[in-house]
Design a protein around this nucleic acid. Structure first.
Lengths: 145, 145
DNA sequence: TGTATTTACATCGCGTACGATTCAGTTTAA
DNA sequence: TTAAACTGAATCGTACGCGATGTAAATACA
């Protein structure tokens, strides 16, 4: 990593733009379901493993309670999630999918897939990109900041 | 790009996390100056070329007026920017740096550089990553979404 | 010329995103 | 066994980020 200044400024900006681009693309795909991108991420986690604690979801998504709690509350209002106090630890709450959220999984995933296919990232080497991003994010994890 | 589903879900998530990681890192570096990351991006644009129209800044950063306008207003309150109506086009406004914003350039850039060096992204191939991200973002540009 | 469209900016509503604080419940250790 | 330290959530304040709408100025064009 020689000459971090210019290079890194541009790297952080490319990441920033890519993130906002993805966010907008997914927003379009998820709009018919009245879902936002972060809400979709919560569903992805719970479709993989239902009944997690708020804490666990936050860890997987890298979100603090200040961000995650309002998202979960909106999804409860939408009738997608249910929250119940854990018996073993009364501070903690278990978040579970409703039937509605379970039954729409296939349709939502199909809509996202359709969008991705229609977008067709010409020539982008997604494998390499993912690998490099994972390395980058792993680096962040070991930092004090 | 075979099997977009899982792969792409993860790609968008890696980008999402990387963006938030960068944002937090830069936030730390910029905190002493009472600057946020998006505010810093505005400064980067204007340090390169002062006296741009709001429209130009928005184009370079990929931000709409709904996002950019409040940022500029805060930076005016901070005493970093000045806004004046364009004479040639009375709808447009020229955004210029104050002396304060010009004089702090070196110190801000040094602080960011120090932070980047102290973070030391071990083994991350920034060149390749940048290249792939630029391709990705170029793809987004040619999309309808 | 006069009207229709477009453009530049402002504002609004909603939904993140994050650090800081608060509070109740849990664990640790003296 | 308590007091102290810690932990999981909730809440608050500030700042994006975006689509939609509003308004005035500029441009197109019939």
């Amino acid at each position: 990593m020689e000459k971090p200044t210019k290079l890194e400024q541009q790297l952080c900006f490319e990441v920033y733009k890519a993130s906002s681009n993805f966010s907008k693309m997914y927003a379009k795909a998820l709009e018919p379901f009245n879902l936002t991108f972060p809400q979709y991420l919560v569903l992805l986690v719970l479709w993989e493993e239902d009944g997690l604690l708020t804490k666990n979801i936050g860890e997987r998504l890298g979100l603090g309670t200040g961000t995650l709690n309002p998202i979960i509350n909106r999804m409860i209002e939408q009738g997608r999630l249910v929250k119940e106090q854990s018996q073993s630890d009364k501070r903690a709450f278990t978040i579970s999918l409703t039937e509605k959220a379970k039954s729409e999984q296939a349709a939502v995933e199909q809509a996202v897939l359709d969008k991705l296919i229609s977008c067709d990232f010409m020539g982008v080497n997604a494998i390499t990109l993912m690998k490099n991003l994972k390395e980058l994010n792993a680096s962040f994890k070991t930092m004090d900041l």
